[in-house]
Nucleic acid binder design. Structure first.
Lengths: 360, 360
DNA sequence: CTGAAAGCGCTTACAG
DNA sequence: CTGAAAGCGCTTACAG
């Protein structure tokens, strides 16, 4: 197929078309396979420097790359972490995944991504498939919904995997009985409410996803908790359920403005994307977002702060969450379940200027 | 660790802690390993229906999952495609990667992602590492820069991989001698210029990345080509080089407005992110983006259209490009190098309203 | 420190 | 159609 002069040259000891194997290296270096293996793997103490150098040189010359499948079949495990992502196009999941990939790379772990189309049954299948790769760990990202039955099935499949010495870490919400890196939605939402109160906001309206997702429930719980803590009456009449999209945010806000004008001083949206939609709705109603009606998003996804005025949001440290999940894998496994929660950070921007008058 | 009643029950034929192996299944079904293997692998014609059913049932009961490492060491290859991403946080690369993951999943291929920190030397190392997984294919995404020497090294390493029967596909720009899915930057940029001309724009300024990347060169070439084709004089005085960030776009546009006011009717930015920065600069100069000065981005990355007014851009079908790369892998390999180019789609939005007067 | 040998879990000619 | 055996490329006790 190719006629690379360096390898096609006759007399060269580079095998023409095949992959160089450990035997080839051993032969080229004039040692046994066992010694070659030991020379190439750091951690084997029992090799002379001379032999090690000779073997390394031969390996380099042959372009030898250990067959990690073979290695895996003898050791029973692979330096691989599998990321199970419910929805890869979701920017939340994407950021967590990026964090995993980067941190895993640093640690010499290969990251394998499997999408699972949101359905929990799909997730069971994915775990089953991925189990066959014998990865050292699986990291689950994104929120699983589904019936109690399918949840139990997923659980069972994951348990099976842990019995095979696999590590399971959940990055997102506290919903499965494994080590979990909790994305601080609840706390972040509560802190947002507090920060807005500090700025003089008193009557929030809430734009919620219609789909019943753990993430949204956490956010909602945080908002309610934050309001209660401040002694704010939280009016459930202004909790609107719409699709988790820009258009959902638009539609919900438009409805809000039509039905209860004047009642609300800030719109809280469960995601940044929805908040951007909310801003458009406000504008189309002849009002100025920020100046006339506050808007806050949630998640602080890259890119969304660039609307005008810039969007107040809560940074959830998702990339760090992904990295933290890898840290969990790297640390020794313990009998106890581990829970990690990172810090949320409220980022006040142009859509929530200080409200002068206190009209609580 | 766990005391799952279904597996802890004595007398059950589920091994307590270990992974079920093909031998276990064969024993449970009362057949040979060979038959068990054949019964489990579709494509083996030589098994009676009765035997197949018996083996399948045993496998199900034992929760058997083939060890794909073992399979790989005997077959020499894995149903895996490796994606080499130069920068995972880059939304362009992310979209292509999503396309790959989704399409690969449908095709029963596992997608493994390796980040390569932009440096081409890193990419060589990544290819070398990944080669040890014996994947059926590697898909390279994002633009590699670097010296001719390191490029040659990368090439060599990839050649080596193809000699091992691996498939290499590049998704992005035509820069390496392998099957390539070309992201239609050049054509898209030319079409953008034509579309803007149609709307009455005559004097574009160009905001370019300072880093010498193939992607940006392609875009620039497309702009120049488009301008020339229309008989437009293209003034290189208004080609500004800044970092590929929002702030870069801001800075470049601010400079432009300061130095040559009135000369330009539309600002073309090499990325959407830069275009968003450009809009802010225009606004901060007391002008209205769109109304007073047109702005167009490039890439049509999800989320960026949501600025106000919404951003004109060029959709590059990046998700589809990722999918197309997988298609290349799936199709039989041929001696000839394959080139696929998808359609770019100019999306006119609020930042480029029709310009009434023709002032060419 | 080094090597011969066994074994990891699979697949696949080769006989029957 | 089925099974016994060899072999894939590695690692790791076990002797020396």
């Amino acid at each position: 197929m190719t006629s690379d002069p360096t390898t096609a040259k006759p007399g060269s000891d580079v095998p023409r078309r095949a992959t160089a194997t450990l035997s080839d290296v051993a032969r080229a270096a004039g040692v046994s396979k066992a010694s070659a293996s030991r020379a190439l793997n750091p951690g084997s103490r029992h090799v002379s420097a001379e032999l090690r150098a000779r073997v390394r040189e031969a390996a380099r010359r042959l372009g030898y790359q250990p067959n990690s499948s073979a290695r895996a079949t003898t050791t029973g495990t692979t330096a691989m972490v599998v990321v199970l992502v419910s929805d890869i196009s979701d920017p939340y999941n994407a950021e967590i995944t990026h964090g995993v990939i980067e941190r895993a790379g640093e640690a010499g772990l290969v990251a394998t991504i499997a999408g699972t189309d949101h359905a929990i049954d799909d997730e069971v299948r994915a775990v089953r498939m991925m189990r066959s790769l014998r990865p050292s760990a699986m990291i689950l990202t994104g929120t699983r919904s589904g019936s109690a039955v399918s949840r139990a099935l997923l659980n069972e499949e994951l348990e099976r995997y842990t019995r095979e010495r696999g590590r399971v870490v959940v990055a997102g919400d506290d919903e499965l009985p494994f080590d979990t890196v909790v994305v601080p939605r609840r706390r972040g939402a509560a802190e947002l409410v507090a920060a807005l109160h500090e700025l003089g906001y008193r009557s929030p309206a809430v734009i919620l996803p219609d789909r019943d997702a753990v993430a949204a429930r956490e956010w909602e719980a945080g908002v309610v908790e934050g309001a209660r803590r401040l002694g704010l009456r939280f009016d459930y009449q202004v909790a609107i359920r719409v699709p988790t999209t820009r258009d959902g945010g638009y539609e919900g806000t438009a409805r809000l403005l039509r039905d209860r004008p004047g009642d609300v001083d800030v719109v809280l949206a469960a995601t940044d994307t929805m908040a951007v939609g909310a801003m458009s709705a406000i504008r189309d109603a002849g009002l100025r977002p920020g100046t006339d009606l506050g808007v806050a998003g949630f998640g602080d996804i890259e890119g969304t702060e660039d609307v005008t005025p810039s969007l107040t949001s809560v940074n959830l440290a998702l990339v760090q969450a992904g990295a933290a999940a890898v840290e969990c894998v790297l640390r020794d496994s313990t009998a106890d379940r581990r829970m990690v929660e990172l810090q949320a950070r409220v980022v006040i921007r142009g859509t929530t200027p200080p409200r002068g008058a206190d009209r609580s």
